[in-house]
Design a protein around this nucleic acid. Structure first.
Length: 767
DNA sequence: TGAATATCAATTTTT
DNA sequence: TTGATATTCA
């Protein structure tokens, strides 16, 4: 029994490639992870590389874990000290090992996105910056964006005053982080990159060490990650990059698909392997995916195929309202479950989280167990972050972000003015809040001193205690438990705090945290006198880098609800893609720009390829969004999919021919009733977004409230209705005026913009 | 200090 | 419409 058994020819070729740079275009469901893990096992088994000389990088901890598990199941080796992990995890590891060379304190802590934001807010406040003019989020974006391009504040070009100030804020922020001994996520990457590029011995050490670098989801890498990889591979290490440009859906957070093409050129990766055989889905589903994605330009090119046959066509459903759409989904799910399907094998996907509410409501009413993905994760919960802040202060009392978070939580009589006073002192002396405590006068100063000594005492009292006992001590001694006991809804928070103790125990018992690398490295580089990080420090890094499961808790068999983004990498027997509407999917914010639209299309591609056996798509004529009724046209993506692969469960309308008779379910009274419930009022219009359908963004939808229909020549028209015009094509009625032959309609046409037409004259057909 | 009230924004998200 | 955050008032 060999590792290489049962691989298809391209897979085999990829696994056994000679040690040169290579690009593997791995389509959805083509066995990507298998190729990656088998190659690692094969390289080691054949003695081409030692576990020590191999690096495997992923984006998520989950992917890293899976890689580790699958590799060790093929080749039972000790993976301790192997560099398999996320970009951030590996950079953290490197910076811990060389904190001195990287200019960081040994106990540096990691700011997650929320911590970073509050750090920025605090900085802006301290500097007296108007946060109207410089919204903290925008400053944060600017900083992270710059870092992800590899730019320090001294490197960023600023052409106008505003940007110059942003650059200055960037510099201030970095200085503040440095002073406090903290790094944010992008800083992990950038600092590691700078360490490698500036420190020749360290660079050469790693370049020499890693003979093989395997990268997962290469299409999601940003520019800095690309350069980091390039630097690491600079000593002759072979990069094995696996990715799928058609599944690149994270451009909005810095991912650069262009890295794939650039890799091919830049690394002279003459070996490009395509994995196109799909083991997941039936033919109709793959046909739809292939045909859809062909509308994108500049692809590296790939066509999925299967030998499993066509399977069932994609079922398409048009609903009257979002509620009815949800109801239909529930009915279908019920029948799927009756047929013996597991609920956990059924997923409902949507473009944006707001869409989950109606679906949840329908599922809940029908008593169908379901699970929504997304939302707060364990380490992001308020009570957990509070507890972690205490623990962080014990590691490093100068960390002002943590200080501010818990200095008065639970309340201990430290008010805003005291804190302002303290901040002023800290700023003028350029010292930490902790160091400034002694200089604050009055009762407030006294309370501050008490808090500082509480932190010191907790540190002292937990010396030499095992990790989970430290945590246990802290949640009690900090007063957190007592505080939540008095709160009405504190029970769950207390449970979570107890769970944190368990998490600490579990973490310490795993072999995860031991930084045996530091040891291994010390033997190579004796000059870096290594000290192992304390278990607490390691646990805090762990908490920041792995915010905990967002995944469904095991247990009851439940229908899976999530965004399309969250579904990437997953698969289900049956998949519902809901809200197939212009403005929703593709999202209105992305329709304008070609690049945005193409990313939406890739997103749809991802959605489609999640389905193994059965795929449903649905859309609705009416949808409640932001408190207003909206009318959308059905998604263009429905037309980009082969007609033969679709099976319309409701009559397909809107094509030039064959719409002679209105269907029985047509404009039913139910539709009108539901609208008249909230009357003819225009709602509290905000003016700017209601009027003027000039931009293309408004082309497909109207935010007007429905009003009574108008009958002309035996046809009834009303606001929100879809109509067809011989010259202008399809559109939605956004406004009706007058009655009878003189009535005027304003219509948003998908191709030709907004037109105002006379109902008596225009050749309009309801569709 | 904390609760009540106004205001504002509203894809997608991992680390 | 919801939800998160900022501001105000007792």
């Amino acid at each position: 029994m060999s590792l290489l058994d049962n691989l298809n020819p391209p897979q085999l070729a990829a696994v056994t490639l000679e040690p040169r740079h290579a690009l593997v275009l791995a389509g959805a469901g083509s066995g990507k992870t298998r190729v990656l893990t088998t190659r690692m096992a094969w390289l080691i088994q054949t003695g081409q590389v030692s576990p020590h000389g191999l690096m495997a990088v992923t984006f998520t901890n989950k992917a890293a874990r899976e890689m580790l598990t699958r590799m060790t199941s093929m080749l039972p080796i000790n993976t301790r000290g192997m560099w398999i992990g996320t970009f951030h995890g590996l950079c953290n590891r490197m910076l811990r090992a060389h904190h001195r060379d990287a200019g960081l304190p040994q106990t540096f802590q990691i700011l997650d996105t929320a911590d970073q934001l509050s750090s920025i807010k605090r900085m802006l406040k301290g500097a007296g910056i108007d946060d109207e003019k410089f919204p903290p989020r925008q400053v944060q974006q600017f900083i992270n964006g710059s870092k992800e391009e590899g730019l320090r504040h001294t490197d960023v070009e600023a052409n106008d005053n505003f940007n110059r100030q942003l650059v200055e804020l960037y510099g201030m922020y970095d200085a503040q982080c440095q002073r406090e001994g903290v790094v944010d996520f992008s800083e992990l990457l950038l600092r590691s990159y700078e360490l490698l590029s500036r420190n020749a011995p360290i660079r050469e050490h790693y370049q020499h060490r890693f003979r093989h670098i395997l990268v997962d989801e290469f299409q999601d890498t940003n520019r800095l990650q690309y350069r980091w990889l390039k630097l690491l591979a600079g000593g002759g290490g072979a990069v094995f990059a696996v990715g799928d440009d058609d599944q690149s859906i994270y451009a909005f957070r810095g991912a650069n698909v262009g890295n794939m093409a650039e890799f091919e050129r830049d690394f002279a990766a003459d070996q490009v392997i395509r994995l196109e055989q799909n083991y997941r889905s039936y033919g109709h589903i793959l046909d739809a995916a292939n045909m859809l994605i062909r509308n994108n330009s500049g692809r590296l090119g790939k066509n999925l195929w299967t030998d499993r046959g066509h399977g069932e066509p994609i079922r398409v459903y048009e609903a009257m309202s979002d509620q009815q759409e949800a109801q239909w989904v529930v009915e279908e799910i019920r029948s799927l479950v009756n047929d013996g399907r597991l609920r956990s094998q059924i997923a409902i996907l949507y473009r944006s989280n707001a869409q989950s509410r109606v679906l949840e409501h329908a599922l809940f009413s029908a008593q169908v167990p379901y699970k929504v993905y997304g939302g707060l994760r364990f380490f992001e919960r308020q009570e957990i972050k509070h507890a972690l802040a205490y623990l962080r202060l014990m590691e490093n009392p100068h960390e002002d972000t943590a200080w501010m978070r818990v200095v008065n939580f639970p309340t201990r009589g430290i008010g805003a003015r005291t804190l302002e006073q303290q901040a002023d002192i800290a700023r003028t002396h350029a010292i930490s809040l902790y160091s400034a405590v002694g200089h604050v006068a009055g009762r407030g100063g006294n309370n501050l001193a008490q808090f500082a000594s509480l932190v010191d005492r907790m540190r002292f009292e937990t010396q030499n205690l095992p990790l989970h006992e430290i945590v246990e001590h802290v949640i009690e001694a900090s007063g957190l438990i007592a505080h939540y006991q008095t709160e009405k809804e504190g029970t769950e928070r207390i449970e979570n705090l107890r769970e944190l103790v368990n998490a600490a125990a579990a973490f310490a018992s795993e072999d995860g945290y031991a930084a045996d690398d530091a040891g291994a490295l010390a033997t190579t580089l004796p000059e870096t006198g290594q000290v192992l990080p304390s278990p607490l420090a390691a646990f805090l890094s762990h908490a920041a880098l792995e915010a905990g499961d967002n995944q469904a808790s095991l247990g009851q068999d439940a229908v899976q609800l999530m965004t399309v983004h969250a579904a990437k990498g997953l698969e289900f027997e049956a998949v519902f893609i809901s809200g197939m509407e212009e403005g929703l999917f593709p999202h209105e914010n992305s329709i304008l720009e070609p690049a945005g639209l193409e990313e939406e299309r890739r997103l749809m591609y991802v959605a489609i390829t999640r389905a193994r056996e059965r795929l449903y798509m649905s859309f609705s004529q009416t949808r409640m969004l932001h408190g207003q009724t909206r009318y959308h046209m059905r998604s263009r993506f429905l037309t980009e999919v082969p007609e033969e692969s679709l099976k319309w469960l409701t009559p397909k309308m809107g094509l030039a021919k064959g719409m002679d008779t209105a269907p029985a379910w047509g404009r039913s009274s139910a539709w009108i009733d539901s609208e008249s419930a909230d009357g003819v009022s225009m709602g509290r219009s905000r003016g700017k977004d209601v009027h003027g359908y000039v931009g293309a963004a408004e082309t497909y939808s109207s935010r007007r409230t429905a009003q009574a229909g108008v009958e002309v020549n035996g046809k009834t028209f009303m606001v929100g209705q879809s109509v067809a015009h011989p010259r202008f094509g399809e559109g939605v009625i956004v406004h009706l005026q007058g009655a009878g032959q003189d009535a005027q309609v304003q219509i948003n046409f998908s191709g030709s913009g907004t037109k105002t037409l006379a109902l008596g004259v225009a050749k309009l057909d309801p569709i």
